Simulated assay, not measured.
Amino acid sequence: MSFQDNKMLIMPAVDIRGGKCVQLVQGKPGSEQVVIENPEKVAKKWEDAGAEVVHVIDLDGALESVTNIETIKKILNEVSVPIQLGGGIRSIEYAEELLNLDIDRLIIGTMGIKNPEIISKLSNEYGSERVMISLDSKDNKVVIKGWQEKIDKSASEISKEFQELGAGSILFTNVDVEGLLGGFYVDPVIDLVDSVDIPVVYSGGVTSLDDLKQLQTTGAKGVVIGSALYKDKIKLEDALKYQNIE
């Protein structure tokens, strides 16, 4: 699946923890506000509601290095739209296993930032459109290892490096607003979009249709929506009206 010039893809989030679909506040374990059985059924629900891609994060993998591979396989068997997957990808062998399972796009965070050559290897082997680098920002600095460790660079400062290495897109998450249902900050998104020539997908704090309207002006090619969907702040069918940019 490729990004399109006139589209900002609306991507419902399915975050997996302990084999269940959950929503955390700012990624903190124990802050679960939503817990639903059978994540594959949740993903199917979003597909049936019109989602063109489902964004899946293995929180156990990201936070505890224990993967939910069996649940991921169930999601792949259940839905036919493309799956964008991240969380806990700590080795190139596991990355290749997931890509060979027909994950459409793999989101690589800590491993890619610590070992940038892995981005080049995967993009050369599988195609850059299937490799997305995850840049998570807290206090305007990139954080890794499940948001536990900060590096002394902003997302905009390191984004070009990953474009040159072969990443086909960027997932930008603003941890400062993640899961708080309080809106998002526009300027960091614009700064990042302006710093690279590859698509940027935004995640974090999108709570209302007004947020989506504002995000359309940034140049972002996609947006991940989690808590707002699960808490009925936004209905997916309404959000999808903001997918096409005039």
Rank of each mutant, 00 (worst) to 15 (best):
L98E: 05
T67L: 12
V200C: 07
D187S: 14
L180Y: 03
V186S: 02
G226W: 13
V193Q: 08
K138H: 14
L171M: 06
A13R: 11
L215D: 08
I108D: 06
G18Y: 01
A13K: 11
D5W: 02
M1W: 03
I10N: 03
D5C: 00
P12W: 06
S156E: 15
E178Q: 11
R130F: 00
G30P: 10
I113T: 08
F162G: 12
I118F: 04
G204L: 08
S154A: 04
V54Y: 01
G18S: 11
Y202H: 05
S195P: 12
V201M: 10
V56L: 07
S128V: 05
L76T: 05
L180I: 15
G183A: 09
A43S: 14
Y94I: 08
V223D: 01
C21M: 05
I75P: 10
E40W: 11
T71Q: 09
S227V: 11
Y185I: 11
D232W: 01
G18L: 02
E117P: 02
D197F: 12
D197I: 03
K41Y: 03
V189D: 09
G182Y: 00
D187F: 00
G27I: 02
I170R: 10
W46L: 11
K241A: 12
N174V: 06
K44S: 14
K73G: 06
D194R: 13
L76Q: 07
V35F: 00
N6H: 13
S195C: 05
E78D: 08
A155M: 05
V54C: 03
P29S: 03
I170G: 12
G219F: 05
E129Q: 14
D194P: 09
Y185R: 15
M8N: 05
S123D: 04
K231T: 09
E93R: 12
L85E: 05
I83Y: 01
K20N: 15
V81T: 10
A49M: 14
I89W: 04
M11Y: 13
E93A: 14
Y94A: 01
L215P: 13
I83D: 04
V54R: 03
V193F: 08
V79H: 01
L101C: 10
A62C: 11
G226P: 12
M1C: 07
E237W: 02
D191C: 01
S169W: 08
E178D: 15
A228C: 08
E37A: 14
I133T: 09
K28T: 13
S203H: 04
T217R: 02
M111F: 15
D15C: 07
V35A: 04
I170A: 09
S80D: 10
D15G: 07
S134M: 02
I107D: 06
E70I: 03
P82T: 09
G166W: 02
V81W: 00
E52D: 11
G88S: 10
G166L: 03
Q216P: 10
E52H: 14
A95F: 00
P82Y: 00
A95T: 02
E164S: 10
V53S: 04
A220E: 09
E40T: 02
V142A: 12
A220K: 08
E32Y: 07
R90N: 13
S2T: 14
L181V: 05
K221M: 11
E161G: 01
